[in-house]
Nucleic acid binder design. Structure first.
Lengths: 147, 147
DNA sequence: CTCATTGTTGCAACAAAGATGCATTAAGAA
DNA sequence: TTCTTAATGCATCTTTGTTGCAACAATGAG
């Protein structure tokens, strides 16, 4: 395997999480990192289907999510979309407080890293541990095409 | 069929939406209205399975959602949960800006009607039309049982 | 009150995605 | 290089979403 910069970054990422560097895992990381929007499981399957098995993909994604390497966003249809976490969410503190944007036109899911969910006061008795905000609407690209 | 107060309310609700009053629809309404938490499709199936067909349930729920009679909340697992809309969300303006709470212990989904999603400023180019905030944590009941 | 019409239901069937068991293979340490 | 253990690929099953179609029932017309 070549010694590219991103390649080494992925290696470190896996190592840090006690995961072996395997071809399927590196492929998944490469694909996810190369996309600015979250990628759905079917899309990933289409891209990597020839290379790695459906179940392996499923397990790689689950492992990555457990380790906090990627995060999962469920869109309106209940389909899982995956994206690499930005640097801020590391090991323990997997910070999912940023907002996701689901374009109802092109169906892409964006991570709006610039926005974070405002603090909310929970009703008495309820303890919040995590929150997930998805905004639906038209994304930048689709809005531009309209014009 | 008996002439209960809620029964008449359901009749009106269906009539208002140009839907025929049928036994499956009334059953679904009755179940949903009787529960303070959103109900998952599997749970509904378990409750009503003997009474109405799985596909019918699926179609009733879809119809109700289209008409704005109920709303759908997708939980962490991508499972659909349904709840009757409170009075505020009527025909046209289906207001989904209230917050949902998904208990990670009992898995119940609550509609936190008292909370509403704060206004957010979208990044340039993005147009928001709807938003959905799900908070994960421990609910009142489960917190009390712990003590 | 009865009939006709049109929306609804139930059944069969299929597709897609989540999930598990197990034999084989490969990564990384000794 | 060998060994141990984790990871993969394959088979398989379950659950949920979805469609087509024939039978049926809710309403309005007569």
């Amino acid at each position: 395997m070549e010694e590219t910069e991103t390649g080494r970054r992925f290696d470190q990422l896996l190592e840090k999480n006690n995961l072996k560097k395997t071809q399927p895992r590196l492929s998944v990381l490469k694909v996810l990192a190369s996309r600015k929007t979250a990628t759905s499981q079917p899309a990933l399957e289409e891209i990597l289907g020839a290379e790695i098995d459906r179940v392996t993909l499923y397990r790689v994604l689950r492992t990555f999510e457990e380790k906090g390497i990627i995060h999962k966003v469920i869109d309106l249809n209940g389909t899982a979309n995956y994206a690499t976490c930005d640097e801020s969410c590391t090991e323990h503190a997997h910070d999912d407080r940023h907002v996701h944007f689901n374009c109802t036109h092109c169906l892409h899911v964006y991570c709006l890293d610039s926005l974070h969910i405002p603090a909310l006061t929970m009703p008495a008795g309820f303890t919040a541990s995590q929150m997930n905000l998805i905004v639906y609407g038209i994304c930048e690209e689709c809005n531009e095409k309209e014009r």
